[in-house]
Simulated scan of single mutants.
Amino acid sequence: MEQSMLGTKVITQIGIIVKDIEKVGASYAKFFGIQPPAWFWTDTREVAQTEYNGGPSEARSKLAFIDCGQLQVELIEPDEQASTWREFLDTHGEGVHHIAFVIEGMKEKLEILNGSGMPLIQKGEYTGGRYAYVDTFSELKVLIELLENDK
C-alpha cells in the first residue's frame, strides 16, 4: 500500500463557507445544544501575509470554530476581496469548502501535491502557524487545507 501524500489520513476540520456567520453559528449551537460560537476576523495582509493565486491579497474573513470531538467545524464568512473563500461563495454558494489536515513540512507537502497536479491556491499565516489551500477539487471533489503549527 502506498503512503499518504500528506503523511496522515486524519481529517481535523471541515470548513464551511457561509453568508451569515452569526445565523449559521446559532443554527449549529441549537443543533449541538451549545452556546453560539464566537467569531473573529482573520488578520490583515500585513500580519497574515495572505497570497491568493500567487499574488498578495487583502482578503479577510470572519471565522468561528465548533469543536466536535476530534473533528472541528470551521465557519467562514468571506469579505468582498478576491480569495478562495469569496470565489467559492460566488461560484457555489454556501457549503463545504475544504477538509483540513494538520501536517509537518508544509513546503515539502506542497511540492508533492503540486507535482501530482494539485496546485496551491491560497496561503497565509496565523498566530502559531500557517495554512495553505490546495486545489484538489478535480480529484477529490473538495479542496484540502494544510495546517502546520509551530513547535
Score class of each variant (00 low, 15 high):
residue 122 Q to N: 07
residue 64 A to G: 13
residue 85 W to H: 12
residue 53 N to V: 01
residue 114 N to F: 01
residue 92 H to V: 02
residue 72 Q to N: 14
residue 121 I to F: 03
residue 61 S to P: 12
residue 100 A to D: 11
residue 116 S to Q: 13
residue 77 E to M: 14
residue 93 G to F: 07
residue 74 E to F: 07
residue 65 F to P: 07
residue 77 E to V: 13
residue 91 T to Q: 12
residue 118 M to T: 00
residue 73 V to S: 10
residue 119 P to R: 00
residue 111 E to W: 00
residue 86 R to M: 14
residue 116 S to R: 09
residue 121 I to E: 04
residue 68 C to V: 14
residue 102 V to R: 11
residue 82 A to D: 13
residue 60 R to A: 10
residue 81 Q to C: 12
residue 80 E to Y: 08
residue 82 A to M: 15
residue 53 N to H: 04
residue 97 H to Y: 02
residue 119 P to K: 02
residue 71 L to R: 09
residue 80 E to Q: 14
residue 120 L to N: 00
residue 104 E to H: 15
residue 85 W to R: 03
residue 71 L to F: 10
residue 69 G to A: 11
residue 112 I to G: 01
residue 91 T to L: 06
residue 99 I to P: 08
residue 121 I to R: 04
residue 69 G to M: 11
residue 96 V to A: 14
residue 70 Q to S: 12
residue 82 A to R: 09
residue 59 A to V: 11
residue 70 Q to T: 13
residue 65 F to K: 13
residue 112 I to F: 06
residue 59 A to D: 05
residue 107 K to P: 01
residue 106 M to H: 00
residue 98 H to P: 04
residue 78 P to T: 10
residue 73 V to E: 13
residue 74 E to P: 08
residue 74 E to N: 10
residue 114 N to M: 00
residue 97 H to V: 03
residue 110 L to S: 03
residue 107 K to A: 10
residue 94 E to R: 03
residue 112 I to H: 00
residue 65 F to D: 13
residue 94 E to I: 04
residue 86 R to N: 13
residue 121 I to T: 00
residue 86 R to P: 07
residue 87 E to M: 12
residue 71 L to G: 02
residue 75 L to C: 06
residue 75 L to W: 03
residue 94 E to Q: 14
residue 101 F to I: 08
residue 62 K to Y: 14
residue 85 W to N: 08
residue 88 F to A: 00
residue 59 A to H: 09
residue 53 N to S: 02
residue 59 A to Y: 06
residue 80 E to P: 11
residue 90 D to I: 02
residue 97 H to N: 09
residue 53 N to A: 06
residue 78 P to H: 10
residue 53 N to L: 07
residue 115 G to I: 05
residue 76 I to V: 14
residue 109 K to R: 10
residue 100 A to R: 07
residue 56 P to F: 05
residue 81 Q to K: 11
residue 89 L to P: 09
residue 100 A to T: 11
residue 112 I to P: 02
residue 106 M to Q: 03
residue 54 G to A: 04
residue 95 G to W: 00
residue 122 Q to F: 04
residue 104 E to S: 15
residue 89 L to A: 03
residue 52 Y to L: 04
residue 63 L to A: 11
residue 62 K to I: 08
residue 64 A to I: 06
residue 102 V to A: 12
residue 52 Y to R: 06
residue 84 T to K: 01
residue 116 S to L: 13
residue 102 V to E: 15
residue 82 A to G: 07
residue 62 K to M: 15
residue 115 G to E: 11
residue 80 E to T: 12
residue 95 G to Y: 01
residue 101 F to S: 04
residue 92 H to P: 04
residue 80 E to N: 15
residue 89 L to Q: 12
residue 110 L to G: 03
residue 79 D to W: 11
residue 112 I to A: 08
residue 73 V to R: 07
residue 99 I to Q: 08
residue 83 S to Y: 07
residue 80 E to R: 09
residue 55 G to E: 12
residue 62 K to V: 09
residue 76 I to C: 08
residue 67 D to R: 14
residue 107 K to N: 10
residue 51 E to Y: 02
residue 110 L to P: 02
residue 99 I to F: 10
residue 80 E to C: 11
residue 115 G to R: 01
residue 110 L to Q: 02
